[in-house]
Nucleic acid binder design. Sequence first.
DNA 1: GCGACAG
DNA 2: ATCTTGTCGC
Length: 220
Amino acid sequence: MITVRDLHPWPSTEAEAEAVQRRLRPLVRVEEPAEIRTAAGLDVAYREDSDELVAAVTVLDVATLSVVDSAVVRDRARFPYVPGLFAFREAPPLLTALQRLAVTPDVLVCDGQGVAHPRRFGLACHLGLLTDLPSIGVGKTPMTRFDPPGEHRGDWTPLEVDGEEVGRALRTRTGVKPVFVSVGHRCTLQAACDLVLRLTPKYRLPETTRTADHLGRQST
DNA sequence: GCGACAG
DNA sequence: ATCTTGTCGC
């Protein structure tokens, strides 16, 4: 069962939110994860306005890529969309959904960045830390600089901030735009990229995020 | 200083 | 995120 730690009060202003990120950032741990048999995909879909959102989580058996558990939570956004402060908008319903899972996944595959973030604390770090589960971020758009990787599946180049490697631009399909992988919590960058490649036998995005995305749309 | 900025 | 036609490829 997944429990959510109460590490901070929920901020109501951007300044407070940034302060929370700076305070939690030192708590992120990079370590080799235990064997990964199941992986959760997390995604949020939006309804008509931009006030109601639907958080969807699916848990996949990594060997077969079949869905073994899932949860959907509908909620109202309590924080505006601000680049860099994504977690304060999407994490609340995602955490509620995670708590409703019957199967505890070995890793959370988040739709967005981990430490490849301006303050090194993206959505994946936030979710990993509050649940104390290994987590990684797989974004469709980069927030940090990088050089284009080779054209073949598996090719990658570093995502860097101040010359430091904070993630990788990873080509999951030959000839297709890369995805942007970074550590969220309790994982290594290499393990994160290995997992992403295992989750992308057919498409650019991981099966985990694809199944979560589909589930969220249906519930819209 | 100004603009751009995960979903 | 979401709004959308046709088009290319497996």
